[in-house]
Design a protein around this nucleic acid. Structure first.
Lengths: 342, 342
DNA sequence: TTTCGAGATTGTAGCGCTCTAAACGTCAAG
DNA sequence: CTTGACGTTTAGAGCGCTACAATCTCGAAA
């Protein structure tokens, strides 16, 4: 396992280690002859630069540490895709740390990266305290995705939930719905924003009197139970807006169990556009957050700090989009009310 | 961003850098007095060991690189959980690299880790050539999860597909099914093993004449189309065994679209026990692979090589289990045939 | 021919740490 | 009082690389 060093390559090629170093880094002022010589020697020896030594000597790592809150959540996979391609385009490599869905796990991952002296730290969906983020910002550039930060040292990238919720309500109202209920995410992260956005949008459309939120917990069973509650109402809603796709799936399940048709009897809209929503037999209308864009922007922000020396905080807000699928359709409400009146 | 060094801590504490080094590494032969002194100085300065320098000097990193084929696949998240807890228990840290679902991406991730001089490399679901794995094994201990390797330098951890497929057929036969068709994974990774396992098991149960495989591709739509094909058969199968959960979901969709009941008209079994399968409204009978165990065993194997110096290859095979949910049930076949005969 | 300068190459001092061997008490036994 | 042993501390030589300044080369201009 003893690996060849630059020294050995230099000797084999009959040049100095400094020249080998230049060749390895792709420096311009090296004659083609020696470059070829060095490359050949390196190839033959199976030389592989020692990044530890390189980084130690150059005091840069050109490495970004990415800490994700929870690797199980496919949400983060797409963010990482965005980060990775943006990082590579700029000559940076990324390393991924798993927060294991806990504050403690995130802290550990952050500490590991700082000890590795990464140039930048991207925190995706982090639940660590802002204090801790600020402490990290003393040693590396930090940007947080999906959460706010007051510190001047920390940039953020977020999605505009008020736009997302308005998109949903606008869509449903446009289809003739008025009794639109909301299954919220309880005390989960971001749940409050979506609930608020729902209420605001309803009022904007003059539907304040129809505001009706039932508690969920971002889970399938939570959505199922919440829908159950909604179906027992005297006047059941004609549309259900769930705080995420999973609870929308649960709600859908309950509604269909009750023998009702989706979307003709009850329309259902989710949030997040997960792989689930795209499934043929679910085909859920939902809000899409441009996750890859999150990653790209976060990377760009962090590189502005590292390479361009920006020191003021930038807070980027990205607009979500509506993805219409098969669980939303025109309300049959109006005609029914007329029938009743007649 | 200039970080305090061991030198500064030593000066502040009035001791040598060597002593600081000992304290930082938790060495035993240090007097309590000096230990406290050093710890205090380090704390006050906000000292954080430089892992680059440490690893360079000690020629060990106590770090495991984990390369996953595709971060989008939740399958790997659980494997990582297993690796992480086993690694931590042994004083190792892990770094995760994303293969981006491509040979090229995996190669890059492997190369990055080797340049970082990780002590061990765990490849999960890797699609790189065995040659490349072997080359990596010259610089670090390597274990592959979910694939075979002939090299003596490489350990493997795999699931016994023949057991898994037998479990499925056994279950279905026990329920009275005989016309059990298979939707395979086409040329996808592992598809051949499952197809073979299906055929073998069928023959074992004396059902060779009912062997019938239609082509899928591990996708939902692939499952849908394959099921479509199966339903047009003169004698349609009473049970469908799909090569993974996603294609099982597609098949389920098609069967229900045809107005048939699952499981009474057609039973459906998937493979992998993904989160999808557990969903209430799918509730798919499927084969569970103990993913966390994969990770734990892989880690144990790699540490045997690193710490205990094992040099022979170990190939570990883990047994999968059957998870019975709602898409499988008794065959109604027998009674029907009797009716026809009468 | 001499001079000059740009490009190519090299010597070497670190980067921040670990590790080995040696040095330094300190104290009980001789 | 000397010696030896033991536990603690330290000096200093690397680890493999980069960065900077210094040096070398060689053709073009004077």
């Amino acid at each position: 396992m003893a690996q060849p060093t630059m020294q050995q390559v230099a000797e084999a090629a009959g040049v100095s280690t400094a020249l080998v170093s230049l060749v390895m880094r792709g420096a311009p002022n090296v004659s083609d002859m020696r470059r070829a010589l060095v490359l050949k020697a390196a190839e033959e020896l199976g030389y592989r630069p020692n990044v530890l030594a390189r980084n130690l000597a150059s005091r840069r790592t050109r490495t970004l540490g990415v800490v994700v809150n929870d690797l199980h959540n496919p949400f983060f996979a797409e963010i990482i895709d965005g980060i990775q391609s943006a990082a590579e385009a700029n000559g940076y490599r990324i390393l991924i740390g798993n927060g294991q869905h806990s504050r403690r796990g995130e802290s550990d991952a952050i500490e590991t990266f700082l000890q590795l002296r990464v140039d930048g730290l991207i925190l995706a969906g982090a639940v660590v305290t802002e204090d801790e983020m600020e402490r990290a910002a003393k040693s590396a550039a930090v940007v947080a995705i999906g959460r706010t930060a007051a510190s001047r040292e920390i940039d953020t990238v977020n999605c505009d939930e008020s736009v997302g919720t308005r998109l949903v309500i606008d869509h449903l109202v446009g289809l003739g719905h008025r009794r639109i209920s909301h299954i919220d995410g309880g005390s989960g992260a971001g749940a409050a924003n979506r609930r608020l956005g729902y209420e605001e949008s309803m009022r904007e459309f003059g539907l304040g009197e129809f505001i009706n939120t039932v508690r969920g917990d971002f889970s399938e069973s939570g959505g199922y139970n919440a829908a159950d509650e909604l179906l027992t109402l005297h006047q059941r809603p004609t549309a259900i807006f769930a705080a995420n796709d999973l609870s929308a799936a649960g709600a859908l399940d309950r509604v269909e169990d009750a023998g009702l048709e989706v979307p003709s009897d009850v329309a259902i809209v989710g949030y997040d556009n997960t792989g689930l929503a795209a499934m043929h037999h679910l085909s859920l209308t939902t809000i899409n957050q441009p996750r890859g864009v999150f990653g790209r922007i976060a990377t760009e922000l962090i590189l502005e700090r590292i390479d361009d020396g920006r020191t003021t905080a930038v807070h980027h807000v990205v607009a979500p989009t509506l993805v219409v699928r098969k669980t939303s359709g025109p309300s049959t409400e109006t005609s029914r009310e007329e029938e009743i009146l007649v």
